[in-house]
């Protein structure tokens, strides 16, 4: 559906994308993750033909990116870009017209989209009078109104409460079932974990890790992760090194990678003689992988 090959892009002397490669297959939800300034928005700009890459190829649906491919793509930008003085319906209708939908199809699509984002009862309210969550949903609806094949959602749930988030996740899954391919950028790793079939982690303009969640989990040579709270960190680390556990600091938590799954009592026994305030075990999550691949090269 989307194929990006060896894209380079510089702003003046600063190279923002370096030999970026990315492939999104038809019907999948691809999560593009990366720290601030990694180049996510720049990549989206290039896909939408707003910026030209310095070199490399991009194909959408087997066509090189051009003004024509614009109507295959629907974008819900990072900010809500809506006409404040128009109602939900009028906003959708306007964009549907811009994308060339005929009247009959347009009316149908506007209603479909309003229903899809649960705004039918607010169809005639002006945007100014909507809550933040409603605006966010309308922002997504506008991206869908012309029935695009590829939908790009730039941080769709930022600033929403958990219920609104669930609604948007549900909507994204529904879109996938309708055969729409989705490129999702997010800073919420939990969100990516829930929704995406494939995840790419971008850093300094390069994909540093890519794959399904199980594939990415292989990047961490451990079965599970144990986090401890202790006043005797150095002792705990020394013990871990003796036992062959790799240790990491996640924020101010001390964590160990267990190469084998152990019983709880075995774990406690391993730290015998060190006073632990708490101990918890968890599976390897996207968060750990993300931290691992994005810190490389900068040192811990």
């Amino acid at each position: 559906m989307l194929l990006i090959e060896n894209i380079n892009k510089s702003y003046g002397k600063r190279q923002v994308l370096q030999n970026l490669n990315l492939q999104i297959n038809f019907g999948e939800i691809y999560g593009l993750l990366g720290p601030n300034g990694a180049g996510k928005t720049t990549t989206i700009n290039i896909i939408c033909n707003l910026l030209k890459a310095d070199s490399g190829n991009i194909k959408i649906n087997n066509q090189p990116v051009s003004e024509k491919t614009k109507s295959i793509i629907g974008v819900a930008p990072q900010e809500n870009l809506l006409y404040q003085g128009l109602s939900c319906k009028e906003n959708l209708d306007f964009f549907a017209q811009i994308y060339g939908l005929r009247r009959k199809v347009r009316q149908l699509q506007v209603d479909n989209c309003l229903a899809a984002v649960n705004l039918l009862d607010r169809a005639n309210s002006t945007v100014e009078t909507l809550s933040g969550g409603m605006k966010r949903r309308l922002n997504i609806a506008v991206a869908l109104v012309h029935q695009p094949k590829l939908v790009i959602l730039d941080e769709p749930t930022t600033g929403l409460d958990i219920e609104a988030r669930y609604e948007i996740w549900e909507l994204i899954r529904k879109l996938r079932h309708q055969g729409i391919t989705i490129l999702l950028t997010t800073h919420l790793l939990d969100e990516a974990e829930r929704l995406c079939q494939k995840i790419g982690i971008l850093k300094n303009g390069q994909i540093v890790a890519e794959g399904t969640l199980p594939e990415l989990q292989k990047l961490i040579p451990a079965k599970e992760i144990v986090t401890v709270q202790t006043a005797e960190e150095e002792k705990a680390i020394a013990r871990a090194i003796e036992l062959g556990f790799i240790h990491r600091h996640y924020g101010n938590e001390l964590a160990f990678w267990l190469p084998e799954s152990l019983e709880l009592k075995e774990i406690i026994a391993a730290f015998d003689g060190i006073s632990l305030a708490s101990i918890s075990r968890q599976p390897i999550k996207l968060e750990h992988i993300y931290l691992e691949v994005t810190k490389q090269g900068t040192g811990d």
Binding site: C48, L50, K68, E79, F95, I98, G100
Partner: peptide, 13 residues
């Protein structure tokens, strides 16, 4: 100001 112009740039308008 509303930045809706950006949305128009994305569209084929």
């Amino acid at each position: 100001e509303q930045q809706t112009l950006k949305r128009l740039f994305i569209s084929p308008l």
